[in-house]
Amino acid sequence: MWASIQNIEQPATLLEANKLNDNKNSVLFSGGTYLVAQKSKEVHTLIDINHLIASKIAEEGEQISIGAGVTLQQMEGHFDKDVIGRSAHQSCYSKNIRNQRTIGGEIAQKSTTSQINVLLHAINVNLKVFVNDRTTEVDINSWDGEGIISEIVFAKDRNVDVKGYSVIPSAPPFIVVGYNYTTKMCVIGGRTNGFANFVVEDGKIDEAVEEKLAEFFADDHHGSCNYKRHLVKVALRDFTG
């Protein structure tokens, strides 16, 4: 029960949804697990946009586009053994929840423990985002979090990988490292406050990156900052051989 919810809106257009969302006691709703994050907040109005966003994966020529309403389980099914399918699978231990969590939700919530989300950042996919009154396209690393994601678009040809580290396989990883072999971009997530990304030449971390990571990682029960930096280096060594 989400007792604070007093009404549910099902707007006819994204434009209408955006307007309704200006109210501070409103939240956009697609899928279901998103609500968990909102449960402690005083939400009065739920703006259901399920019917406004695509839940299909399309491949056209060299391009793949994934509707924001596609579930992790759909991604796993579609991409199967590919790194996309594998990371969608590893983003959540529960198949029940992979049936419910959507890729749009992963991105919109900036889920840092989601391996697929880290991977999409490493690919630097484009997002089709409905902001104000129109759809614009922006790359995921530049997106400011405003608007409603409707689609994720990227090239078929990609050379990326991701690794997550957790104490037992089902536990959310405390470090996730994504790596793009083409652009040499490394993206770090996990039990972190946001993502870190940087370019790595020859699989080696330079001093500036070391410093950036020192600020990025906190000492906590998952491990010290020092240990986490070590793990990133191990991951990069594993990626680049």
Binding site: Y165, V167, H221, H222, G223, S224, N226, Y227, H230
Partner: peptide
Amino acid sequence: ITPEKILKGLGKI
């Protein structure tokens, strides 16, 4: 037993 304790024991960090 945490991963870091093991690495410390191994002298790797």
